[in-house]
């Protein structure tokens, strides 16, 4: 028998999750205790599988249970286009748009000496390997539009200067649904910089 009360222990673990405080953690624990039989074992089993089975895809770096991941294995996607993003969640955002049919490459971060992250800490080597295959015609760099994301984009741009591939940066501007009058000055300035002929 463990010394610590199991309810308290579960609460303590749950409140480490982002966005979960004491109250929510407690509510979740009591919900699980009252849930139909099997709920807790199934939840535990699925969490355990996360720890045991999920790893980085050897091609794109996305987190996956199968290697290569479903996205990389999908024959219907366009091999000529690769979209480089900072985090796995960014892939989901692009997929929601339904606009992009190419492939992805996940860096797992952005270069930031302040956070102790240098180029060698990013998933860059495998990007160069992918480019060596020769199928990729365009690399779209979709890092965040902040100082760290820009530095990462500039770095990759320089890294790929000698490679025969088109490198583009995702355009930034005014979000759809925003009236110009209410757009913030920074977005408006970026949109002006990135304007294009009609």
């Amino acid at each position: 028998m463990s010394e610590v009360d199991p309810i308290k222990q579960a609460v303590q673990h749950l409140r480490r999750l982002p966005g979960v405080g004491d109250k929510t953690a407690t509510r979740l624990v009591y919900w699980m205790l009252r849930a139909p039989e099997g709920t807790i074992p199934e939840l535990s089993a699925s969490l355990l599988r996360l720890a045991e089975e999920v790893r980085q895809c050897s091609v794109c770096g996305d987190l996956t249970g199968t290697d290569p991941c479903a996205m990389c294995a999908d024959p219907r996607r366009d091999d000529a286009l690769v979209c480089v993003v900072e985090h796995p969640q960014d892939v989901l955002a692009f997929e929601r748009s339904g606009e992009f049919r190419g492939r992805y490459h996940i860096l797992h971060g952005a270069i930031s000496p302040l956070d102790g992250i240098g180029p060698s800490d990013l998933n860059l080597r495998s990007l160069l390997e992918r480019l060596r295959g020769g199928q990729i015609k365009e690399v779209i760099i979709a890092t965040d539009p902040d100082v760290e994301g820009d530095a990462t984009a500039l770095y990759i741009g320089r890294l790929l200067a000698g490679v025969d591939v088109q490198v583009t940066r995702l355009a930034h501007g005014i979000s759809v649904g925003t009236e110009i009058e209410y757009a913030d000055a920074v977005s408006l300035a970026r949109a002006l910089q990135n304007r294009r002929p009609l």
């Binding site: 530095a151 500039l154 770095y155």
Partner: peptide, 11 residues
């Protein structure tokens, strides 16, 4: 790393 320093100079 010269490339990295170039990037920061540029920024």
């Amino acid at each position: 790393d010269a490339t990295m320093l170039d990037v920061y100079d540029d920024q």
